[in-house]
Amino acid sequence: MAVCCAALALTLGSCATQKNDRLTTGSVPSVNLSKPIDSMTAPELAVAERSIGAAYDRNPKDRTTGLNYANILRMNGRNTQALAVMQQVAIANPSDREVLAAYGKAQAAAGQLEQALVTIGRAQTPDRPDWRLYSAEGAVLDQLGRSDEARRKYRIALDTQPNEPSVMSNLGMSYVLSGDLRTAETYLKSAAALPTADSRVRQNLALVVGLQGRFSEAEQIARRELSETQAEANVTYLRGMLAQQNSWAKLADKDKAKQAQATN
């Protein structure tokens, strides 16, 4: 289903200006960057890719440079190259949990979902569990269609890190993928209301609101706290997805059927 595929893309990224990076496992330190990678526009990402790529070429074994470079490549949609970079970083840092988590993220973005689960599992340790890894694992399980397992991982993450907006957003998007839009909106509204929520959470909320036919409200949410260029790109992306009326109708019918079953 086209809209479901678009929703899944938002679980891993945001809208048009933030591709394939919603599988958050912690922020990566910047290397001579003027702003966080996740908040860069497309032209800024292109400049960053060139500068960090040059630094990576000079020293491909540098952990921080490799992490940043792979992150930027994913944001630019170059998932295969990002995976190749992370393979090298993981070889040089085989026991580094952050590196393993980022490697798993790169595998998932490149479509290697089962391998990503194994890698993320290697990064997790029972004595020092990391909520980010539980959330990352949940996102991969959702892509594999194992929604019940995914939601258990999200709830474990929330037990460890209560009211974490990125995890609540992933949990909400999990319900989008199964067609339960009202439950999805509940989680996403709660996540978006938290002071630490970022624009990606609000863009996911905009998608869910739009999928329920409230297009003006969805556009208002999509435009908040973004530059004009980013806002226009995200609204255009949102409109494009919501224009897929056949897919929207299927999701809406599935949602109504669930609600009818609940009241019978």
Rank of each mutant, 00 (worst) to 15 (best):
L194W: 04
Q212C: 06
S166L: 15
L177C: 05
I156H: 11
N163D: 15
R223W: 04
A108I: 00
L194R: 10
S216M: 08
E225K: 07
S147P: 04
R223T: 03
T183Q: 07
V176Y: 10
R214L: 07
D180H: 13
S199M: 06
E137V: 06
G138V: 04
P195L: 00
A139F: 07
E164H: 15
E137H: 13
T229E: 06
E217N: 00
L141Q: 01
V167A: 14
K105W: 04
T183S: 03
R214M: 05
L177R: 08
A116M: 06
Q161G: 04
P129S: 07
T160G: 11
R223F: 01
R224D: 05
T196F: 01
M173Y: 04
A106T: 10
E228V: 09
A193M: 11
A193C: 12
Y187M: 13
L181G: 13
R152L: 11
G121Y: 02
L226T: 08
E185L: 08
E185H: 04
L205M: 03
Q115Y: 07
L133I: 13
V167H: 07
E137M: 12
R155G: 02
L141M: 00
L205H: 04
M168F: 01
G172R: 00
M173F: 04
L133P: 05
A106C: 13
A197I: 05
R202G: 02
L113P: 02
G111W: 09
K189E: 07
S190F: 02
S227N: 05
G111P: 08
S135P: 05
Q124G: 06
G210N: 02
A218Y: 03
L158H: 11
R182N: 12
S216C: 02
K105H: 03
I156V: 15
D127W: 04
L211H: 07
L133G: 03
A109E: 09
T186R: 15
L133W: 06
E228R: 12
G145H: 05
